[in-house]
Amino acid sequence: MRSPFFATPPATTMPDAAAYALRLGDDALVLSHRLAEWVAHAPELEEDVALANISLDLLGQARALLAYAGAVEGAGRDEDALAYLRDDRAFTNMQLVELPRGDFGLTIARQLLFSTYQRMLYARLAASSDETLAGIAAKAEKEVAYHVDHATQWTLRLGEGTAGSHARMRAGLVAVWPYADELFEADPLTDRLAAEGVGVDPSCLRGEWDAAVDGVLREATLERPEVRPAAGGGRRGLHTEHLGHLLAEMQSLHRAHPGVTW
């Protein structure tokens, strides 16, 4: 639902390319933080390492995207200012990435949905007429191929594993599926950038994504859940209650000690 009260997102004052880089950077940054929460809590040591590595890839992508957003904006905000000194309403990530990590089933369900989407998005963005965005995407796409493989392998293991692992994987899918539609929502910004050959129209990815995800679910003996979509609005700065808590933890050090280094 689009509410007139929230019609003006805080980030639209940025130039288009900056606002777009910020969206993709926010997706990567917030999910990176969620995955980092698994360190020392994963089901096995190798998973601590794997999720930390995936988190680190996303953090690197976020740094490049946020640094570029700040440079294009030209208002003197660097990657740290954008990551640590914005409030939740100024974040333009999709709600899917901010949901609490849940159990391992939910985390893998989200990884399957998001990594599959992100790889398809980056593959197209690598052909952007904007050289910086194209460079970041071409680099990141190779990394995300490993994330897709990781999520796929775990979906198969959990889906085809025990009754318990199957049930938790299914519950994870039910929990994240309402947030899937938002991945493909086009808006005036993506319309303009897609027309200019700078950005990707996310609605174009839906068919390919459906086929890929459905294929994995079928092989894993899982089904696409029948659930109502969530209201969405992350791109317009509308978030679940969870993002504020995540940001409070992520930003506290930088805000308490501005410019701190070690």
Binding site: E46, V49, A50, A52, N53, D57, H150
Partner: peptide, 13 residues
């Protein structure tokens, strides 16, 4: 292979 992700981003176990 025991894990596609190793001690650093560029390595597997």
């Amino acid at each position: 292979m025991t894990s596609r992700f190793g001690s650093t981003a560029c390595k597997a176990l």
